[in-house]
Structures are given as structure tokens and as C-alpha cells.
């Protein structure tokens, strides 16, 4: 498989705080990578560097062979990646349909009819076609996150970044969102997902990345990772959350 994302020697500072330390990571096209680790370990910052929401302090992030720069990152984002956030970040002043058609109409220059048809298809996939005219604040958290996933799908980029998509949800709503993500994982989309859902990681991930204190400590298949992790910090972390 061709490399879709290539991260080399990535460092990120917030002021004096060294958040990412010499990160190297390559993700193949169509690969599903799950990033886990304690909070504050730099997981979110790492995936936010992939769509340039955070600018690397040093090192490079390349998508499909092109290095992200200040100049090209918007164009690269439009072409390659979309993102699902912990807090959903739906546009509250627009209907569900409006949320899904804004970028296709304004950025991809699609006609309203075309954008609406694509939006409805995406909403059907997440099981919310009947909510097209609703406003986000009238939906449950789980429904809002499914709409956010549909919004990420509708622009049809090859990469979707998930930043703790279930962390802000009530427990009974987590599964409906995970189900949608598991269904998505059947496709040839490149997914990087920061999550604490170990069941999801086991089921979906091609590789699991464990991060702590700004470094990648372990990378491996879910089997290797959950059954027989090499790094002691990783074992300790797994013990804490699995028992």
C-alpha cells in the first residue's frame, strides 16, 4: 500500500511546553490507526498536526507525498482530510442539512441539488436522514456526533481524523457512534482515531499506537498490542484501563 501520511521528526511546543517529541509515523492508504495513551500525552495534538490545525514547530508532515506548509495546507485539507471532534462542533445556526452542504457548496463549488443529494446519502449512512431539517441543539449527543461524521464523509476526502469522538458522550450513546465508525472502517478510507475505546481499537485497528509524554512508545497490531505489549509503561496503562 502507498503511504498516505508520513510524519517525520515532528516536534511541537506550546510556549515552553514540549508536547510532541521527535514523532515518526507512517500511515498507509486505507489503513486504520488507533492512537491511545493517557491524557496530556499529545495524541490530539499529533492528529491536529495532520490537518495543520496545529503547526509543527519542527519536522514535517506529508500527505500523499506533499509536505504540508503554511501556504498549501488549506488546499491539502480540502483535498485530503476531514475531522470529527470530541465536542462535535456542528454549526448551531444551520440545520443538519446546512451543516453538510456548506463546504461542498462553498469550497467544492457543487450545485445545491448535487450537495443536497450527497448530504442525504451521507445522512442515510449514519441513520439520520429524517433529521435533515433539525437544528443540532435539538439532537442528542450521539446524534450530533453521527451528523458530524456525516459532515466529514460528505466531502469525500480519503482521510478522516477522529479526535476522541466518544469522550463527550453519555455512555448509552457511545455504541451508536462506534457502530457508524466500524461500518466506515469497511471502506478504503484512511482513518486515524484518538480514542479510549479499547474494544473499538481491537476490532477496527490495523495498528495501535501508544503515546505517552509526547512520544510514541509502542506501535503494533491490536493482537500484539493487547496480548503482549513490550513497553512496561504501555502494560501499566493497559492494566489500568482494562481491569
Amino acid at each position: 500500500m502507498a503511504d498516505m501520511i508520513e510524519i517525520k521528526g515532528l516536534n511541537k511546543y506550546f510556549g515552553d511546553l514540549h508536547v510532541l517529541k521527535d514523532i515518526d509515523l507512517t500511515v498507509a492508504a486505507g489503513e486504520k490507526v488507533v492512537i491511545i495513551g493517557p491524557s496530556g500525552s499529545g495524541k490530539s495534538t499529533l492528529i491536529r498536526c495532520v490537518n495543520f490545525l496545529e503547526e509543527p514547530t519542527s519536522g514535517t508532515v506529508s500527505i500523499d507525498g506533499t509536505q504540508l506548509t503554511r501556504k498549501n495546507h488549506l488546499e491539502m485539507t480540502r483535498k485530503y482530510s476531514s475531522m470529527v471532534f470530541q465536542q462535535f462542533n456542528l454549526y448551531p445556526n444551520m440545520t443538519v442539512l446546512g451543516n453538510l452542504t456548506l463546504a461542498p457548496i462553498k469550497l467544492q463549488k457543487k450545485s445545491k441539488e448535487e450537495a443536497t443529494a450527497a448530504a442525504m446519502a451521507a445522512l442515510k449512512r449514519v441513520g439520520l436522514a429524517e433529521k435533515a431539517g433539525e437544528y443540532p441543539q435539538n439532537l442528542s449527543g450521539g446524534q450530533q456526533q453521527r451528523v458530524a461524521i456525516a459532515r466529514a464523509l460528505v466531502t469525500k476526502q480519503p482521510i478522516i481524523l477522529f479526535d476522541e469522538p466518544t469522550s463527550a458522550l453519555d455512555p448509552e450513546m457511545i455504541q451508536e457512534v462506534l457502530d457508524v465508525m466500524i461500518e466506515l472502517a469497511q471502506e478504503n478510507i484512511t482513518m486515524i482515531c484518538v480514542t479510549h475505546e479499547m474494544g473499538f481499537a481491537r476490532q477496527v485497528a490495523d495498528r495501535v499506537v501508544f503515546m505517552e509524554d509526547g512520544r510514541i512508545l509502542e506501535v503494533g497490531t491490536p493482537e500484539h498490542f493487547f496480548e503482549n505489549p513490550e513497553n512496561p509503561r504501555c502494560r501499566e496503562f493497559l492494566n489500568k484501563i482494562l481491569h
Binding site: L53, T77, M83, F85, Q87, N89, L107, R151, T155
Partner: peptide
């Protein structure tokens, strides 16, 4: 909320847009 600008930028909108 800040998340709105982030969502917009994650879709490829420039800051003025």
C-alpha cells in the same frame, strides 16, 4: 466557541471564509 473556527478550518475554510 473556538471549536467552530477549528471545524471550519478542518473543512478547508480559510480564516476570512
Amino acid at each position: 466557541p473556538r471549536g467552530q473556527m477549528e471545524a471550519a478550518r478542518s473543512q478547508g475554510f480559510s480564516r476570512p471564509q
